[in-house]
Design a protein around this nucleic acid. Structure first.
Length: 879
RNA sequence: GCCGAAGUGGUGGAAUUGGUAGACACGCUAGACUUAGGAUCUAGUACCGCGAGGUGUGGAGGUUCAAGUCCUCUCUUCGGUACCA
């Protein structure tokens, strides 16, 4: 047998074998229990990165493990193929997004195949193919018909110089990433999905997904953000009637703190609020308001940007009336008031809200305390921050003296009586804006007719395919709008000849919200999916992907299943029964003063530890450890690992380096250790190869064995239990692997004692065969090529993946002796071994007479002796 | 800012129904074998201290016979933050 494991020969051999034997092809089989394992499909950026390798290795191990347990396992793979990078690459390299994408797909498919992953490649899909997005368009039309999709005006980032819409990612500190022009906010008509219709249901089911990590549920709950509070109407000063419902005469606010209503001394409106312009017009503040609104429109629109920028506002020249005390209070417009949340208006209570407090101090506005805590007396002159805790109402008319928690209900009821307010529920969740003014996405299948308005494209005309010959840098918004042959169309309804196609495409999160259904019947031509296959395979039993998708992608997918459920197309609401969110693969960034971010291979480490850029020899700054990403160039190319060590060592390392849910900080050392372990097993098998084929593995009771054989046999059974438990318990492969390493070490240690193989008696040979066989089986999901090869070399006939997962012998888990740990006052002072059946009294006595213990106990009064028999047996003597 | 995590030797990590902190590896040190070693095998390796012993799980308090694990506060880093996917 060769001295080393040689992946170059072995890995392709077994990949061909699995391929030839259709090992991972599956179809529906009602006689078997199904198992759907899904990994988040990749965006075809060009190269598989370490995050993918990690994600897909974890999934692959589970697939092989479940298959060995007898499940009918489906394991599909595909491509999340629409998206911005293709368009950017096309602009930068003068290619077509489709050509770029398909090239990347073949390169990445080739890499995945080299990793030996167990995909049923017959089910491969790419979302940019018309056969896929046709059905997305079909669903869009169905949602449009049921009023689940609608249009409204909303803002986008706009670069005036490039005449184009920018993604948040393309805005760098309020400037365009291409030309550094100031970004503005531009109002456009855009399509939305009414996800808010399902807010309550999505929230309720957060508590019914035991297979999901708590943290993800918590994040989703907070994202949906249900809060109960009150709507309160503030009459605009100067408008005539109290009861007038006209929105011109009232400002409606949403507040969770109606108990502080008497303390509301000013009002803040979102800069986009329609009343801002209306009320400021003709006042002396008009100019300042315009300037402020313009300024805000150049500030970043992301929540992050809004919250981090300085809180500013301007008086709009109008007042409204606080309905609690009929006080006239000024109306401001402020950059922190969000049109999307609540009603776009905030009643500001500076004494009891920190943001309002700072705002009031800045603009010298009135502050009034209305909640008095029990243990101190608030005085506005001495307050340095707002008080948001509990207390008793003051300065609140008839409500003075009431507990504020009670006042929440009482004041709301009082407002309700006067028709000035009501109890209400508000969600933070907003409807899902799906319009994108981009080329490389699913075209929105509607036609705008001057007479008929919005007309859906007839089903027979689907898909609306992406046209060729579009200028991606064309000015003015959607690239599709520049192509007359695409835009100009007859109205399907009235046949008018000057109708126009919608030129927006859909958010790529739409494709990823249902791709797992398409895998069930990927070539189905009569609908999104064949219902029978979906009935069999769905829901996904185990979903695996990055924690960065904890909210959006997963929430959108849950929403889509509810839509399909409402349409009667699927029987379930939750797409993913169990979820594993793997941590990210991270690495430090390298920045060259000349060349910006540089790849690790573009830098070199000098002996003095300095890192230099290979292009210009300038010292490179070693930055923070962050998620590996192409844009930051802090990536490791898995190809290099594959070439040097092969797929199995790469896989082993990904699993051994950290538990899956934890971030993995990349470190080049460590791979070497995995390689060493693989070869250690290789040599172990080589050593015993002469009898492994002929000797049957030991299978009888442990008690019949002699001492050394018994110890080994127990270790092997413990290893089977440990590996099985570690996989079942959240896929902790790192500890599973280390327990196999321990068994391998035990075999080496035994071999060192009984140096000559001739000394091995039949009993020992049987136990060794048992150990080796199980080492290979336990490792086979992790290092499948390697295990198959050695399995074959041990004379085993059938492929190892057809071998059932091993079971341990319960009578062979425990050794006869246990170690007793003795503490004095909680500090470890001594240890001794004793028979497992010793009683507490005997253990106490041995502990007390131990000479190491006596050092600490002699001459002292023993107050208490505690004996614990759990994982460890422990005695704690309290003196 | 908000929401969610993470923090343990020189390094990755192990140990959470509270019960020996550092399993298993990497790295390092020494030895063996070898023509050779970036192969392999063996031994050692948390820190301080000559030693007895003491200290130690980001930091500060607390509960307990016993705390990495539970409680309070706090610092740092990472992810998401609705047009990156």
């Amino acid at each position: 047998m060769e001295e080393h494991y040689n992946p170059v020969d072995v890995e392709p051999k077994w990949q061909k074998y699995w391929n030839k034997n259709h090992t991972f092809k599956v179809k529906e089989d009602k006689s078997k229990e199904k198992y759907y394992l899904l990994e988040m499909f990749p965006y075809p950026s060009g190269k598989i990165h370490m995050g993918h390798v990690r994600n897909y290795t974890i999934g692959d191990v589970v697939v092989r493990y479940k298959k060995m347990q007898g499940f009918n396992v489906i394991h599909p793979m595909g491509w999340d193929a629409f998206g911005m990078p293709a368009e950017n690459a096309a602009i930068d390299n003068n290619t077509h997004p489709a050509a770029w994408t398909y090239e990347n797909i073949s390169a990445m498919r080739y890499q995945l195949k080299k990793m030996g992953f167990s995909y049923d490649w017959d089910r491969e899909i790419a979302t940019c193919r018309p056969e896929y997005y046709k059905w997305e368009q079909w669903l869009f039309l169905k949602m449009l018909e049921k009023d689940m999709a609608y249009r409204k005006e909303s803002y986008v980032n706009w670069c005036e110089k490039c005449q184009t819409v920018l993604a948040n990612e393309q805005v760098e500190s309020d400037k365009c990433w291409r030309c550094s022009e100031n970004v503005q906010q531009k109002k456009l008509w855009q399509w939305f999905f009414k996800i808010t219709d399902y807010a309550e249901d999505l929230l309720a089911h957060c508590n019914k997904l035991p297979g999901w990590p708590d943290k993800v549920m918590r994040m989703q709950k907070n994202w949906i953000g249900k809060s109960s509070g009150s709507e309160v109407k503030f009459k605009i000063d100067g408008s005539d009637s109290n009861n007038d419902q006209d929105s011109d005469k009232n400002i409606t606010v949403f507040t969770t703190r109606p108990d502080t209503l008497f303390g509301s001394t000013f009002m803040c409106l979102a800069p986009e609020h329609p009343l801002v312009e209306k009320l400021s017009r003709g006042t002396s503040q008009e100019k300042q308001v315009d300037e402020f609104v313009n300024k805000v429109s150049t500030q970043e629109r992301s929540a992050e940007g809004i919250e981090n920028c300085e809180k500013e506002g301007v008086f709009i020249g109008a007042y409204c009336i606080n309905p609690a005390n009929n006080e006239k209070i000024p109306i401001y417009t402020a950059n922190f008031a969000l049109m999307e949340y609540g009603t776009g208006a905030v009643m500001s209570v500076p004494a009891h809200d920190q943001r309002d407090f700072e705002f009031a101090k800045k603009y010298d506005l009135n502050i009034r305390v209305v909640i008095m805590p029990e243990d101190e007396s608030l005085d506005i002159d001495n307050m340095t921050c707002a008080y948001s805790g509990r207390g008793v109402l003051v300065n609140s008319g008839e409500f003075n003296g009431l507990e504020n928690t009670q006042a929440i209900d009482d004041i709301t009821a009082w407002l309700e009586n006067q028709d000035r307010g009501k109890k209400t529920i508000n969600f933070r969740l907003r409807d899902w804006g799906i319009s994108r003014q981009r080329y490389w996405g699913t075209p929105i299948p509607v036609i705008h007719c001057p007479d008929c308005g919005i007309v859906p494209v007839p089903e027979k005309d689907l898909p609306v395919t992406l046209p060729e010959g579009v200028d991606l840098l064309a000015k003015g918004g959607s690239p599709l709008a520049t192509l007359d042959s695409f835009v100009n169309v007859d109205c399907p309804k009235c046949k008018r000849e000057d109708a126009k196609r919608d030129t927006d495409t859909m958010d790529t999160f739409v494709e990823s919200s249902w791709y797992f259904l398409r895998y069930c019947s990927p070539r189905y031509e009569n609908g999104m999916f064949d219902p029978e296959t979906v009935d069999y395979w769905m829901p996904v039993d185990q979903y695996i992907g990055g924690i960065e998708h904890a909210v959006m992608h997963l929430l959108y997918s849950r929403y889509f299943m509810r839509v399909l459920n409402t349409f009667g197309m699927v029987k379930f609401k939750e797409p993913f029964t169990k979820l594993l969110t793997q941590g990210m693969v991270c690495k430090e960034t390298l920045t060259c003063p000349e060349h910006g971010f540089v790849f690790p291979e573009e830098s070199e480490i000098k002996s003095d530890g300095q890192v230099l850029c290979t292009k210009c020899n300038a010292p490179v700054e070693v930055g923070r450890v962050i998620k590996m990403s192409k844009s930051k160039k802090n990536v490791i190319n898995p190809n290099d690992l594959l070439e040097k060590y092969g797929a199995d060592v790469t896989r082993l390392f990904c699993l051994f380096a950290a538990p899956p849910e934890r971030d993995l900080e990349w470190n080049d050392d460590g791979v070497e250790g995995c390689n060493r372990f693989i070869n250690r097993v290789w040599r172990l098998v080589g050593k015993y190869q002469d009898f492994l084929s002929d000797v049957k593995p030991y299978s009888e009771s442990a008690s019949k064995l002699s001492k050394n054989a018994k110890a080994l046999y127990i270790k092997a059974n413990q290893t089977i239990k440990k590996v099985t438990d570690d996989i079942e318990d959240n896929f902790h492969f790192n500890t599973a692997i280390s327990s196999v390493m321990e068994l391998v070490n035990a075999l080496y240690a035994m071999e060192a004692v009984e140096r000559e193989l001739d000394f091995l008696d039949d009993e020992m040979k049987q136990v060794i065969t048992f150990c080796v066989e199980n080492i290979l089986i336990l490792l086979s999901p992790i290092v499948p090529h390697f295990s198959e090869e050695l399995w074959e070399r041990c004379g085993r006939k059938s492929s190892i993946i057809n071998h059932p997962w091993p079971e341990y012998h319960t009578d062979a888990l425990q050794t006869d002796e246990v170690i007793i740990v003795v503490q004095v006052n909680g500090k470890l002072r001594s240890k001794f071994t004793t028979d497992i059946n010793s009683d507490d009294e005997a253990i106490k006595n041995t502990a007390l007479s131990d000479k190491n213990v006596l050092k600490y106990t002699s001459g002292k009064h023993i107050r208490k002796i505690i004996v614990i028999r759990k994982k460890q047996t422990l005695v704690n003597i309290v003196v």
